[in-house]
Computed example of a mutant assay.
Amino acid sequence: MHVTRRRRRGLLALAGLSALLVTASAVPATAATAQPRDADPLQRAVDAVHDTGVVGVAAEVTSPDGSDSARAGTAALGTDRRMPPDGRFRIGSATKTFTATVVLQLVAEGRLSLDDTVERWLPGLVRADGVDGREITVRQLLQHTSGIPDVLPEADALLTADGYRSDRFRTFTPEELVGLALRQPLPETEWSYSNTNYILAAMIVHEVTGRSWEREVTDRIIRPLGLADTSAPGSFPFILGPHARAYTGFGTDAAIDVTLLNPSMAVGSGSIISTTHDLNRFFAALFDGRLLEPAELAEMTATVPAPDLGVDYGLGVAEIPLSCGGSYYGHVGELLGYRALAGATPDGSGTAVVYATGDGDRGTQAAMMALVDQELCATGS
């Protein structure tokens, strides 16, 4: 897409673009080994993430032998408050895995087909030069092969400090977001990450069920799994319960507290709030078969190349190589001051989630990838 560097940065902050998904071979071998040798391996990996300049970091991992967690940094700038042991945070694009799961549950119930067109459920909504909902399927939405442009909130909202201050409480409707997206340039490649795809998927869930995407996610995933610290907040701008503050510099050296945010611009694509513990439970349940039937889980994990990311992408999950051989399924997430990575082994027996607050630097993503790689490789050893 032809966007300016500032706009591209804003897309990452707003939407949790999966540009953080890189192959394990691209992760520096020393990324998680910078601390004293007698330190716990998970703590070393968390410290390595913190050393890239983020404010706070927390991680939790699970395996057949139990679970482990580690923290580094502070929960708020200018304080010595430790990161909360199970703090809540905006999970960004890891929300897409929840949305894809709901859609695939509806497929299993015979209420929807992956081969249904967008036009069938949202007649007339997706029509623009080079984009036609009559030719785009639900599968293509979830797979990011629809050719629909990504959405940019108008007037640089949330891309600058002034935009954040003026629009942090603004409510966007899904229809408004789709309209904004259709005014953007078309992607230049067949596979192109677009948050608009998942906004449309959320709208289709509403049309199929007669209930909001938020309610379906809650009733189908959050409540059955007992994810007590997870929520789909709609337009509610606050994070309730223990949480670390979120910060971004909007491309400058000044860190601004951006914890307050109306996440309506990310419905279906990035708005869920959760914890490392709850995300581990979700990914374990997803891949051990508690949420999807085998046929639908096979659809989710049937991947296509995502050349720009160096990985393969299925329906709401990426398949990411492990340095020890094999691969895991997971998703990155980033939403204005929070960034995360969640992953699980193909059978769900091992999971790892890490999140950080603040912008960090170019090494932050590599250190997070190294942590998940290290822990999931250990699960299989």
Rank of each mutant, 00 (worst) to 15 (best):
D150F: 06
D150G: 10
A155V: 09
A157K: 03
L158W: 15
D167P: 09
F169K: 14
F172S: 10
E176I: 02
E176A: 13
V178I: 12
A181G: 01
L182G: 03
L182H: 04
L182I: 04
R183D: 14
R183P: 03
P185Y: 06
L186M: 07
P187F: 05
P187N: 02
E188F: 11
T189Q: 13
T189W: 02
W191I: 10
W191P: 04
S192P: 10
Y193A: 03
T196F: 01
I199E: 08
L200S: 13
A201N: 09
A202H: 05
M203Y: 11
I204S: 12
V205F: 03
V208S: 07
V208Y: 05
V208N: 08
G210E: 04
S212C: 10
W213L: 01
E214R: 02
R215S: 08
R215T: 08
D219H: 10
I221T: 03
I222F: 00
R223N: 10
L225P: 07
G226P: 01
L227Y: 03
A228H: 12
S231P: 06
A232G: 01
A232P: 00
P233G: 04
P233H: 04
G234W: 02
G234A: 02
S235D: 11
S235G: 06
I239V: 13
I239P: 02
L240C: 05
P242I: 01
A244T: 02
R245I: 02
T248E: 14
G249M: 06
G251H: 11
A254Y: 09
A255V: 09
I256Y: 14
D257Q: 10
L261K: 04
N262V: 07
